[in-house]
């Protein structure tokens, strides 16, 4: 072991320089050519303010499309899921409560049409997306609270559906983008 000590220490030092210093520096250099210089993609709001495109936000007002429930209340400095088991009684009560709240804010919808993603918490607690059905079922409420027609809101939802990539993966809608564009609409 003694014989190996010096080369091992030296090898450790040069590996740290290469792998923990040179390598991240190169990636950082490449990131300078990426949108927003590797500080996270942003989208512009109505008043020209920047919002992080990929970080979901909490929406509780009736005039906005709601995001998915979050176990960490959309705390982007402490991500996480609920980690509840599928038959945990407390958890099932919580889901039931979310269904009831949703029904109360969206009168006139059929319970069977609520997709599960609107009443289950995401893995990161920051999911920026909802399913297409999850947006469609909120159209009536949005139209009502903004004084728009259902057709107008349905049209803007339709333009925000992100298709599967090369035919792979699920369809989805970025809630923040949708709400920003909803705010930009004239009415």
């Amino acid at each position: 072991m003694k014989k190996e000590l010096l080369p091992s220490i030296l090898l450790t030092i040069v590996s740290i320089v290469l792998l923990a210093w040179v390598y991240p520096a190169i990636v950082w250099g490449i990131a300078q050519f990426a949108p927003n210089k590797g500080e996270g993609f942003v989208i512009k709001g109505k008043d020209n303010k920047d919002y992080y495109e990929n970080i979901g936000q909490n929406f509780t007002e009736d005039k906005y499309f709601w995001s998915r429930p979050s176990a960490v209340s959309y705390n982007a400095a402490g991500s996480g899921g609920s980690n509840k088991g599928t038959d945990n009684p407390d958890y099932l009560l919580q889901v039931q409560a979310r269904i009831d709240t949703f029904m109360a804010h969206n009168p006139g919808i059929n319970k069977r049409d609520i997709p599960s993603d609107l009443v289950t918490a995401s893995g990161s607690g920051l999911d920026p997306h909802i399913s297409v059905q999850g947006a469609k079922i909120q159209i009536k409420r949005i139209a009502g609270s903004r004084g728009l027609t259902v057709v107008q809101v349905a049209a803007i939802v339709k333009t925000h559906i992100e298709a599967p990539m090369f035919g792979m993966g699920p369809e989805r809608i970025n809630v923040l983008q949708l709400n920003i564009d909803l705010d930009k609409m004239k009415y």
Partner: peptide, 16 residues
């Protein structure tokens, strides 16, 4: 509970 699960078990999963 009477709601639809078109996307399966979504607790802890991400839409994308």
């Amino acid at each position: 509970m009477g709601i639809a699960q078109p996307d399966g078990n979504m607790e802890g999963k991400e839409i994308r």
